[in-house]
Design a protein around this nucleic acid. Structure first.
Lengths: 223, 223
DNA sequence: TGTTCATATTGGTCCAACCAATTCCTGTTT
DNA sequence: AAACAGGAATTGGTTGGACCAATATGAACA
């Protein structure tokens, strides 16, 4: 037989606990001793499960304080494997390709589903980005935020998670920017066109605008 | 002071050990008890570090055997991505949507990149599927294989991993079949059209064919 | 040569205690 | 009443030793 070790089962049960009790990001879990008692296993076993979940980015333990539900935060996980990622620079192109597949359709979906608030947030971000560019500051923060809000507006968490992970990979490999003013302005213009399409609820135009935007970025990146 | 817990330090030291000693994929690490002695920490602490590395995909422990170096391949990184997907199995609709975003573009890419051998494999699968349908057998195996070969032909491991994860989820939830002869034949016809487009290297037609194919499936699934 | 079985090795689990960081209450001071 | 200081309670981090369970190994056997 190939029975799973107990700590793996416990891992799942803790996840269940979190889900069925509707834990939200930042909530504190019961102390290890309680969990051990509740699941009828040793505290040791609980801790191994917690280490697993911590590495997976689901939880975070703070000495003397407690264990917290982190939601799914990828950037922290990625840090632990950064060294590994660096050995796979050649694959980063695939990640870009993956994003290139998703983003235009996200834009199209968002055109149908975006809320008033999200649209406003988007406009605010583009505004901020414009300011940053004009001041010759780094606008990568705003740029990332723009794409993230869009993914949220598409209202599909699965896609959102995939995109977040991709972004984390890209960030971590520091492939990044080469940002200058002309490139920044082009980015702002692209974003404005997308926002415009969203405002009109025009799916096709949104898709196309995003498509063009990404192509432009790719060209200026591959200098 | 904000000293890291010991198990985190041990995690790094184990990685060092692996690197400096030139461990290769599949090599066996020293037993936990040795490691504990060598690093002057408790075996418990070692184990927590091992759990962390195991979750990161670097190591694998086998009961009664030993702990092995798994190497750090790309898929271990993507595991992070795919695990995100798998935490959302309740949202099966989103998963379908995700696939719907990817598959047509995969078809388009595959039209440019597919090899002779892959095209042959594709034809063989469609052939088998046709046989299965005519014999009123379940063709889900062939159907899955078709989409997988296509993803391989697109030659993008990142996308492939995401799709595999999605497929596993769909399989898992047994949403599936409702397969009957007319639906099966429609599927075969759809696949044939896609193969035809691939053979001609026609990206756009491949995309469209896949798009239509998916729409048809969705309709017949939502009975 | 091939099989079986005892044994050693190794990961998995448990317990009970103690260390260390943080929080929280309580009493004091201002 | 507000601010502060200090100690107790809570909670994660670590330890050592014991035992269970799966696997590998090698010797005895057919």
């Amino acid at each position: 037989m190939n029975t799973s070790p107990q700590y793996q089962l416990i891992t799942k049960r803790i996840l269940e606990l979190v889900e069925t009790n509707g834990y939200k990001r930042g909530d504190k879990l019961p102390p290890e001793r309680k969990l051990a008692e509740q699941f009828h296993v040793s505290r040791n076993c609980i801790r191994e499960a917690l280490r697993t979940l911590a590495e997976a980015g689901v939880l975070e333990s703070r000495h003397g304080d407690g264990t917290y539900y982190k939601g799914t935060d990828f950037s922290s996980i990625m840090k632990t494997v950064t060294s590994a990622v660096s050995r796979h620079h050649e694959r980063i192109g695939e990640i870009f390709e993956l994003r290139h597949m998703l983003e235009p359709q996200i834009a199209a979906l968002a055109a149908k589903r975006i809320t008033r608030e999200q649209l406003d947030a988007l406009k605010a971000v583009v505004f901020d980005q414009h300011q940053a560019v004009l001041k010759q500051q780094d606008d990568s923060q705003q740029d990332g935020r723009f794409h993230r809000i869009l993914a949220e507006a598409a209202n599909n968490t699965a896609v959102l998670e995939v995109l977040d992970a991709s972004q984390a990979l890209i960030d971590d490999t520091r492939i990044a920017p080469l940002r200058n003013e002309s490139r920044g302005l082009a980015s702002v213009t692209g974003h404005m066109r997308i926002v415009d399409a969203l405002e009109n609820g025009d799916s096709e135009e949104a898709r196309k605008a995003m498509e063009d935007h990404l192509c432009e970025i790719e060209q200026t990146t591959m200098n």
